[in-house]
């Protein structure tokens, strides 16, 4: 029954695509709701259920007011807390303690990164960032599990794709914009230790460029680059590389050994030891995950 409905939808969309077609009667695409309880239904319910329904209706009447009141009370309490905060922007506030002095004062010599934030997240606190990458990977895996299992493999939503693909404005804009978006993403990733940016920001930009390309030219054109296999292999390789690299530097650091990765001259593109390769690994993971999210939500597979 479901497949019958599908062909009907696709026929309608095709007709709409090729000619003028009134879409108003296609608005009822979904099967009608299973019975929403009406007053007559409520009368026919058993007594206990009827009482419950009445209570539910009364609760629903006061619920918005309760929710609004709760919001107001909560904001009042939080504002009371804000009143007790130290003055905004003062240099001797509690967050600006010796930890910050160490990170800013010694960071450039110890990590080789001019961008102190990159030094903090990929060197001093690299373990935290490794966990972040795994959170992202786990979320992508969970989304895959949730959405893959319910869609038959190999089936595409052809209607939607054809409509998007035939758009000349989108195609020509993407043709001009996508190379620059990808180049900018690569620049942000590779410059993470020298200026604002890094793996997460650059990876998100790269992923956005890939998504734009997929919308404009279809998934097939990207399939040679990103498919199920390359997606899995790349992400797993990046995470393994990250873990291995950090294990090595933790081992060396804990035992007072010199690492083979020198910090180089701060400010040069090839400096800061492990930060640049780690940024590349994180960027690849983020870019593929972003593209993977879009692809899985749109068509049920990567």
């Amino acid at each position: 029954m479901k497949s019958k409905k599908k062909t009907k939808v696709s026929e309608r969309l095709r007709a709409w695509d090729q000619s003028s077609f009134d879409l108003t009667d296609a608005l009822e695409l979904n099967p009608p709701l299973p019975k929403a309880p009406t007053p007559e239904d409520r009368e026919s319910l058993p007594v206990i259920d009827r009482i419950e329904a009445r209570q539910f209706a009364g609760f629903r009447k006061i619920y918005p007011w309760l929710a609004g009141l709760l919001g107001l009370v909560m904001s009042a309490f939080l504002l009371l807390g804000v009143l007790k905060l130290p003055p905004y922007g003062a240099a001797d506030n509690p967050p600006h303690n010796e930890v910050m002095d160490r990170y800013v004062g010694e960071g450039m010599h110890e990590t080789g990164a001019v961008n102190t934030v990159a030094g903090v997240i990929l060197d001093y606190r690299a373990f935290d960032t490794l966990g972040e990458s795994h959170v992202l990977y786990t979320a992508a895996a969970a989304v895959l599990i949730l959405l893959l299992s319910s869609s038959r493999k190999g089936e595409e939503p052809p209607e939607l794709r054809r409509i998007m693909e035939d758009d000349p404005i989108l195609r020509n804009t993407a043709k001009v914009v996508v190379p620059f978006v990808l180049l900018f993403g690569v620049y942000i990733i590779l410059n993470g230790h020298l200026g604002p940016g890094g793996g997460f920001a650059g990876g998100a930009i790269l992923g956005g460029g890939l998504i734009l390309y997929a919308i404009a030219f279809g998934y097939e054109s990207l399939e040679r680059l990103i498919n199920d296999r390359s997606y899995r292999v790349t992400i797993a390789a990046c995470l393994c590389f990250y873990s291995a690299a950090k294990c090595y530097s933790f081992y060396c650091g804990a035992n007072g050994l010199e690492t083979i990765f020198s910090t180089g001259t701060p400010g040069a593109i090839l400096s800061a030891g492990l930060i640049l390769p780690l940024n590349v690994a994180v960027g690849l993971v983020v870019a593929l995950t972003m593209y993977g999210f879009y692809s899985v939500f749109q068509r049920g597979r990567i």
Binding site: Y88, G89, H96, G105, G107, T116, V117, V120, R125, D128
Partner: peptide
């Protein structure tokens, strides 16, 4: 944020912590 200080990206080799904002919240 610290009023009047620069973002925590070392410029001109100046590593005095009193010149930069706190990098930790950004992370």
């Amino acid at each position: 944020y610290i009023a009047g200080r620069k973002p925590p990206i070392i410029t001109d080799g100046n590593t005095d912590p009193a010149a930069y904002a706190n990098p930790l919240p950004a992370g």
